[in-house]
Simulated scan of single mutants.
Amino acid sequence: MHEQLRPGPPGYRGHPDPPIYAGLLARWAADGRTLPGRRDPEWSRIASAPIWPAGSLYGG
């Protein structure tokens, strides 16, 4: 397993995570959990939904 660098602004080299964290992140990823420094697909889906419901029931 290779060490992953932490995200940061452009040009930032970062520091590699210690191996114990790399293993933990791999386990969380395998379980489908949200990981630090990565987008949460569920949050992205919810945040991109329309503010008001649509359809005949709501006048749209």
Rank of each mutant, 00 (worst) to 15 (best):
I46R: 04
W43K: 06
P19H: 09
S56C: 07
A29I: 00
R13Q: 09
W43F: 07
D17S: 06
E3R: 09
T34E: 10
G37H: 03
A22Y: 00
G14C: 11
Q4V: 04
Q4E: 12
P9A: 15
S48G: 15
L24P: 01
P19I: 01
A49I: 03
R45M: 15
P16E: 02
A54K: 15
P53S: 10
A47W: 15
D40T: 15
I46Q: 07
R13T: 13
A29K: 00
G37D: 11
A29R: 00
Y58I: 03
T34Q: 09
S56H: 12
R13V: 14
I51T: 11
Y12T: 02
L24R: 02
L25M: 15
L25I: 05
R33P: 04
L5W: 08
G37A: 06
P10G: 02
L25W: 00
P16T: 01
D40H: 14
L35D: 04
R27N: 03
A49V: 04
A29G: 03
A54D: 11
L35R: 06
A22W: 00
I51Y: 10
A30H: 07
P9R: 11
D31Q: 14
G37V: 03
G55R: 01
P50A: 14
P36R: 06
A54N: 14
R39I: 12
A26F: 05
S48E: 07
G32E: 14
G60R: 08
L5C: 09
P36C: 02
E42S: 11
I46V: 10
G55M: 03
G8L: 09
D40R: 14
L25Q: 01
I46C: 15
S56A: 10
G55K: 02
H2L: 05
G60I: 12
G32T: 05
E42L: 05
D17M: 02
T34F: 02
R39Q: 10
Y21P: 00
P53N: 09
P16H: 06
A54I: 10
R6F: 00
P18G: 02
H2K: 12
W43G: 13
S56V: 07
P9L: 12
G23K: 06
Q4W: 02
P16V: 01
P53F: 09
G55P: 00
S48L: 14
W43S: 09
G60P: 01
L57N: 08
R13S: 12
R38M: 05
P53L: 07
L57H: 10
L5M: 12
A29F: 00
G60N: 06
R33H: 15
S56E: 10
P53C: 09
P10V: 09
G60A: 10
R39Y: 05
W28M: 14
L24D: 13
I20M: 05
G8T: 12
G59M: 06
D17E: 04
G11C: 12
S48N: 15
I20P: 00
R27K: 10
Y12D: 08
I20F: 12
P19G: 08
H2I: 09
I46L: 13
R33M: 07
P18N: 11
